[in-house]
Amino acid sequence: MAEESRILTGYVSLPYKWAMGPATTRFYEEFRKKRIMGSRCGKCNRILVPARSFCSDCFVETDEWVEVSQEGSIRTWVLINFAYEGQPKEPPYILAILDLDGADVGLPHFVGGFEMKDLETVEEKVRIGGRVKAVWKENREGYILDIDYFEPID
């Protein structure tokens, strides 16, 4: 007996209002002014980027804000070549974890500013340990994507 199983199509789309808290609010105020801020943990002495109100390793409040460099090195990278719902940009694009100078933890962001025709052209530009620099958007709204991407500089 052939049994049919019909498909019901629907969409769940819900609005949210996420409270950033004081640390993230301040981080993004500085971000608008093209400054990348970290916070120092007084116990382990690490500079945490983005700046945050507590150190999860030491479980203590952070006690000092410091500006970190707009330049850093690529810890690791990936070329994204597939599409999904809610994607921030059209593939192909490059995601990377970046170690900014003066920071002790990595920051995930895009690496870009060049043509990504094929893997060969990408590998000429992007390598682990390669140097990058932040490229800011003209209009900044206080969000992580105010930095358009990090551009290879070596």
């Binding site: 996420w18 999904y84 962001h109 992580i144």
Partner: peptide
């Protein structure tokens, strides 16, 4: 706030 745009699923 920080990470969502950069986590292209599991791959």
């Amino acid at each position: 706030f920080f990470q969502r745009p950069f986590l292209a699923g599991a791959p």
